[in-house]
Amino acid sequence: MIYTGLRPGDLVEVKNENIHLDKRYFRGGFKTEAGTNRVIPIHKKIHSLIEARMDPKKEYLVINHENNKMSCYVYYHEKWKKIMEQLEMDHKPHDCRHTFATLMDNAGANK
């Protein structure tokens, strides 16, 4: 999420059909008018991560153990919290979006 600026709710909504690995972008976002279905570049550092997770036979990029769309609740409670515990860290998923915004602001990106 740090490399995309996606909200946690946006991440679980990303459909594989909207990911274009060859052109290094995908479409996502739904909360605001400006953010809905926006083009999101795929940074070279996360390209292989997205490629490994992508399954053209599945509708969504992030899926649950039953191969269905994962809810934000499940993402947070069954995935995120476990990872934070393993890393002995205390971050919330939205921290990634704040970090992204700060990095873009520091780089002089157009808001």
Score class of each variant (00 low, 15 high):
residue 46 I to L: 13
residue 69 K to I: 06
residue 101 A to D: 14
residue 70 M to H: 00
residue 29 G to W: 09
residue 51 E to Y: 03
residue 42 I to D: 02
residue 63 I to H: 07
residue 91 H to M: 04
residue 40 I to F: 06
residue 106 N to Q: 08
residue 42 I to Y: 01
residue 104 M to P: 01
residue 82 K to A: 01
residue 71 S to G: 12
residue 38 R to G: 11
residue 42 I to S: 02
residue 94 H to Y: 11
residue 75 Y to W: 09
residue 97 R to C: 14
residue 107 A to H: 06
residue 92 K to D: 01
residue 31 K to I: 13
residue 48 S to Y: 05
residue 51 E to K: 15
residue 79 K to H: 10
residue 108 G to V: 12
residue 98 H to R: 13
residue 99 T to F: 09
residue 100 F to M: 04
residue 102 T to S: 11
residue 57 K to I: 09
residue 104 M to F: 13
residue 96 C to A: 14
residue 80 W to C: 00
residue 43 H to D: 06
residue 43 H to R: 12
residue 74 V to T: 06
residue 32 T to I: 06
residue 55 D to N: 10
residue 104 M to S: 14
residue 82 K to G: 01
residue 99 T to Q: 07
residue 82 K to D: 03
residue 42 I to F: 03
residue 38 R to L: 12
residue 99 T to A: 12
residue 31 K to W: 03
residue 85 E to R: 11
residue 105 D to M: 09
residue 47 H to E: 09
residue 51 E to T: 02
residue 46 I to C: 06
residue 84 M to V: 02
residue 43 H to G: 04
residue 77 H to L: 05
residue 58 K to C: 11
residue 52 A to M: 10
residue 86 Q to W: 01
residue 108 G to R: 11
residue 38 R to T: 08
residue 89 M to Q: 13
residue 105 D to A: 10
residue 68 N to T: 11
residue 75 Y to I: 00
residue 62 V to N: 00
residue 85 E to C: 04
residue 69 K to G: 00
residue 91 H to Y: 10
residue 46 I to M: 08
residue 93 P to A: 15
residue 92 K to L: 02
residue 67 N to I: 14
residue 99 T to K: 13
residue 30 F to G: 03
residue 83 I to Q: 08
residue 39 V to D: 11
residue 47 H to W: 10
residue 101 A to W: 07
residue 49 L to H: 08
residue 50 I to H: 06
residue 33 E to R: 12
residue 32 T to V: 10
residue 96 C to T: 09
residue 41 P to T: 05
residue 65 H to K: 07
residue 77 H to M: 07
residue 73 Y to F: 04
residue 60 Y to E: 06
residue 83 I to F: 02
residue 60 Y to F: 09
residue 44 K to W: 13
residue 40 I to N: 06
residue 39 V to T: 13
residue 80 W to T: 00
residue 92 K to A: 02
residue 41 P to L: 07
residue 44 K to P: 03
residue 104 M to N: 14
residue 65 H to V: 15
residue 50 I to F: 12
residue 41 P to H: 07
residue 85 E to T: 12
residue 45 K to P: 09
residue 53 R to G: 14
residue 62 V to Y: 02
residue 73 Y to T: 12
residue 37 N to Q: 07
residue 79 K to T: 07
residue 84 M to P: 02
residue 69 K to M: 09
residue 92 K to T: 03
residue 29 G to V: 11
residue 67 N to E: 15
residue 29 G to C: 05
residue 55 D to H: 05
residue 51 E to V: 00
residue 86 Q to G: 03
residue 56 P to W: 02
residue 79 K to L: 06
residue 104 M to L: 09
residue 71 S to P: 04
residue 37 N to M: 08
residue 39 V to Y: 08
residue 74 V to H: 15
residue 101 A to C: 04
residue 103 L to V: 04
residue 97 R to P: 08
residue 59 E to D: 15
residue 49 L to Q: 13
residue 98 H to Q: 04
residue 106 N to F: 08
residue 63 I to L: 04
residue 107 A to P: 00
residue 87 L to Q: 08
residue 77 H to A: 07
residue 66 E to T: 12
residue 67 N to L: 11
residue 106 N to V: 14
residue 57 K to M: 15
residue 34 A to D: 11
residue 40 I to Q: 02
residue 86 Q to V: 08
residue 31 K to G: 06
residue 80 W to Q: 01
residue 98 H to K: 13
residue 54 M to L: 12
residue 81 K to M: 04
residue 78 E to R: 07
residue 69 K to C: 02
residue 48 S to V: 03
